[in-house]
Amino acid sequence: MRLDYPPNVKIVRVPCTGKVDLLHILKAFEQGMDGVYVAGCLEGECHFLRGNLRAKKRVGHVKRILAALGINPERIQMYNLSAAMGGRFVEIAREMTGKVRALGPSPIKTGKGREFVEGQGEEKKQ
């Protein structure tokens, strides 16, 4: 297919998204990633039956933790696509890169305080 996706996307391979732990995601943010997304198989098509559904719940939990910490929960996303969807993979990589670029650098990296106020659902101007 020879499709390009943004070079700033770093891929961490796991045997199944069911293996992705809360700590894996939190540590990525700790280390200064501006955004993280989990790319799992299509819902209902997990080889291990519920791996991607477990991942979805964990991503939801990380969203709640980030929101409570004043970090925009949009910085963590879950996407579902099959291994045969190369075009969609590129689309997602571009979409997520664009979304995170629009949010700007993570406050965890800049140390500039909260960027998000829980309940108001909108970013606080820095």
Partner: peptide, 14 residues
């Protein structure tokens, strides 16, 4: 998890 969350909160505030 809590240690990571606390670290994130602190880094957020520099």
């Amino acid at each position: 998890i809590l240690a990571s969350a606390i670290t994130l909160a602190r880094k957020r505030d520099g």
